[in-house]
Design a protein around this nucleic acid. Structure first.
Length: 239
DNA sequence: GTCCAGGGCCGTT
DNA sequence: AACGGCCATGGA
């Protein structure tokens, strides 16, 4: 009966990449950081916090405001008035809490690492993760986004889209964050070399977002979905 | 007008 | 442990 390929994360990755192409999320020029105190990795950290439950188009407006105010810098965030910060990031929504969250992580990086992100990222991965999770306003997805997209670490980021997708594909009984992350990382680290994992997790997460926007919406739009044949979601619709 | 976005915290069960 | 309310703006 079951003559199809057993679906698994690395197969989904290949299907999505073939269908959607590379997504180019947070493409950083890593060649010239920490020149004049400004580090592009901190911009990614800011983006990871501002995009919490928020459309990226709104985050971009806030980032532009911060850049024009010369605020994409740890010390600048530490030293600025929090009310000023709120106004700059207002377009990204939840600006009261997010302004405080930016303050919190900036102060932490200054106090513990003297604003040197190399010191932060060049430590044991799980230690860095736990440290981020201690900070108020940094949950698992934000922490992992920082480690992957800013720190180039081999960590797969799980978000609401990922849970929805894996739930509908019925790949796991347990849909919790840690469960999905372990499932994907086990599969990928078994199939691909370690030094390629950061780039692949980066791409996979972005591809899942693209897939969820095109097809696997809350109200699904399954016509043309490249993983339709693997899907067990009872309410899938072909319009 | 309604829905929802690249979550996380906090209070209640 | 699990769940619901809350936070806020802007585009579809």
């Amino acid at each position: 009966m079951n003559n199809t390929v057993q679906i698994s994360p690395n197969i989904i990755y290949k299907i999505f990449l073939d269908n959607y192409g590379p997504q180019y999320w947070w493409p950083m020029d890593r060649s010239h950081h920490k020149k004049n105190g400004s580090d592009p990795r901190f911009e990614v950290i800011i983006g990871a916090i501002l995009t919490q439950n928020t459309a990226w188009s709104n985050v971009e407006k806030a980032i532009v405001n911060l850049k024009q105010a010369d605020m994409l810098d740890i010390l600048a965030v530490v030293n600025c008035n929090v009310e000023t910060l709120k106004q700059l990031i207002r377009p990204s929504g939840f600006f009261n809490q997010k302004a405080q969250r930016l303050k919190t992580i900036a102060i932490h990086l200054k106090d513990i690492y003297d604003s040197n992100l190399d010191l932060f990222f060049n430590q044991d991965l799980q230690s860095a993760r736990k440290e981020l999770l201690q900070l108020n306003g940094i949950g698992p997805e934000t922490a992992d986004s920082i480690l992957l997209y800013a720190g180039d670490k081999p960590i797969f980021v799980v978000d609401a889209y990922t849970k929805r997708l894996f739930g509908r594909l019925n790949l796991l009984t347990d849909i919790s964050y840690d469960s999905i992350q372990f499932y994907v990382e086990s599969d990928f680290s078994d199939k691909f070399p370690m030094d390629q994992l950061p780039q692949m997790y980066n791409e996979f997460h972005a591809l899942i977002v693209e897939h969820a926007k095109r097809f696997c919406r809350k109200k699904p739009n399954c016509s043309g979905c490249p993983v339709f044949e693997y899907c067990t979601y009872p309410n899938r619709v072909l319009e």
